[in-house]
């Protein structure tokens, strides 16, 4: 028999072939499976499993959520358990063997896809949401950290790691730490131009 076309191979991998057609492909696979290059193995395997996976996914663009992912694992375990009960190890068809060979790769791909969607979507609960407009906070001194939080009512910036103001300093009464004030005069006669628009 000549090499079956891709559709026939896919049907064979999915266990849909019966009778004479199944026998022909089984015979061909027994004699030619070792000659198949890795690329072709992957191709026929992925083609069949990809269709199956895509068919099992919801018809939306949403990524698989944990519930869906877990249910698919449970379903696979359940199916494997059932097949172990009803099938005899010595008479496992070749198409099932190849499927079992490909299954770990498919599973790994599904895990990678799932992990990718989670990395994109997941936000740690303890990190406040930062609006892009407000996120440009620059803290020149090392050891000081700024956390920005934004809501419809207000923007909040929390600065941590600041040197406390001495309790001895009565700022409410007008006390100031020793040093030169950076404050420039802001009357129109004395101000320094900086930017224009």
């Amino acid at each position: 028999m000549n090499k079956p076309d891709e559709k026939t191979l896919s049907s064979w991998l999915e266990g849909k072939l019966e009778g004479e057609e199944l026998r022909k492909v089984d015979t061909w696979a027994e004699t030619h499976a070792g000659e198949l290059d890795e690329e072709f193995k992957c191709e026929i395997g992925w083609c069949a499993l990809n269709d199956e996976l895509m068919a099992s996914l919801p018809d939306s663009e949403e990524p698989p959520y944990p519930e869906f992912f877990n249910s698919k694992i449970q379903q696979a375990i359940s199916e494997d358990s059932q097949s172990e009960v009803v099938s005899e190890p010595s008479s496992t068809p070749l198409w099932q063997k190849i499927r079992l060979m490909i299954a770990p790769a498919a599973f790994a791909a599904l895990v990678a896809f799932y992990a990718g969607t989670q990395m994109q979507n997941e936000k740690p609960a303890d990190i406040p949401e930062v609006a892009s407009e407000q996120s440009s906070v620059y803290v020149p001194n090392s050891g000081i950290v700024a956390a920005v939080s934004e809501s419809n009512d207000a923007t909040e910036i929390i600065l941590r790691g600041l040197t406390p103001i001495s309790d001895e300093l009565d700022i409410a009464a007008g006390d100031t730490s020793p040093g030169h004030s950076p404050m420039m005069a802001n009357t129109p006669d004395e101000i320094n131009p900086d930017i224009f628009f």
């Binding site: 007008g174 006390d175 100031t176 004030s181 404050m183 900086d194 930017i195």
Partner: peptide, 16 residues
């Protein structure tokens, strides 16, 4: 001010 640096000094006497 449109194009100048401005300063706010909430505690009139203290510049802390």
């Amino acid at each position: 001010l449109r194009s100048y640096e401005n300063w706010a000094n909430p505690m009139k006497n203290s510049k802390e």
